[in-house]
Amino acid sequence: QTTIQVRVPYRVVGLVVGPKGATIKRIQQRTHTYIVTPGRDKEPVFAVTGMPENVDRAREEIEAHITL
């Protein structure tokens, strides 16, 4: 297991999390990772935990939302 920090712009935190957390839950299920969402007043950084290859996939999925 490994944990990485995925930093995103403030404006996309809501996009990545999705309505009621649906998007981030879907990313967690698809990539078999555990993702901690940043709090409102915190740095916009997601903490992604899982097997290294799964963590990389989750990071790619999160980063895909940044380019939307």
Rank of each mutant, 00 (worst) to 15 (best):
T2W: 10
T2N: 07
T3M: 01
T3Y: 04
I4W: 03
Q5V: 05
V6C: 01
V6L: 05
V6S: 09
R7E: 06
R7M: 01
V8D: 10
V8E: 00
P9G: 02
Y10S: 15
V12D: 12
V12E: 11
V13L: 07
G14I: 07
G14C: 02
G14H: 07
L15I: 09
L15S: 14
L15Y: 12
L15K: 13
V16S: 04
V17H: 04
V17Y: 09
V17M: 13
V17F: 00
G18L: 06
K20W: 11
K20F: 10
G21V: 01
G21N: 00
G21I: 07
A22K: 13
T23Y: 05
I24P: 00
K25I: 03
R26F: 00
R26S: 14
R26M: 11
I27T: 04
I27S: 00
I27C: 02
Q28H: 10
Q29M: 08
Q29A: 10
Q29W: 00
Q29V: 10
Q29K: 12
Q29G: 08
T31W: 02
T31H: 04
H32L: 09
T33Q: 04
T33F: 03
T33N: 00
T33I: 07
Y34W: 11
I35E: 08
I35H: 01
V36W: 05
V36P: 03
V36Q: 12
V36H: 09
T37K: 04
P38F: 02
P38W: 01
P38T: 07
P38R: 06
P38E: 01
G39T: 12
R40A: 11
R40Q: 12
R40G: 07
R40D: 09
R40I: 08
R40T: 12
R40P: 13
E43N: 09
E43H: 05
V45F: 05
V48R: 07
V48K: 03
T49G: 03
T49N: 05
G50C: 01
G50N: 05
M51L: 14
M51R: 12
P52H: 02
P52I: 03
P52T: 10
E53A: 11
E53I: 11
N54R: 02
N54G: 07
N54P: 02
V55D: 01
V55Q: 04
D56A: 15
A58E: 03
A58Q: 05
R59E: 00
R59C: 08
R59G: 02
E60P: 04
E61K: 06
E63N: 07
E63R: 09
E63T: 08
E63D: 03
E63F: 12
A64Q: 14
A64L: 03
H65P: 02
H65A: 13
I66Y: 10
I66N: 07
I66M: 10
I66R: 08
I66W: 11
T67F: 05
T67A: 15
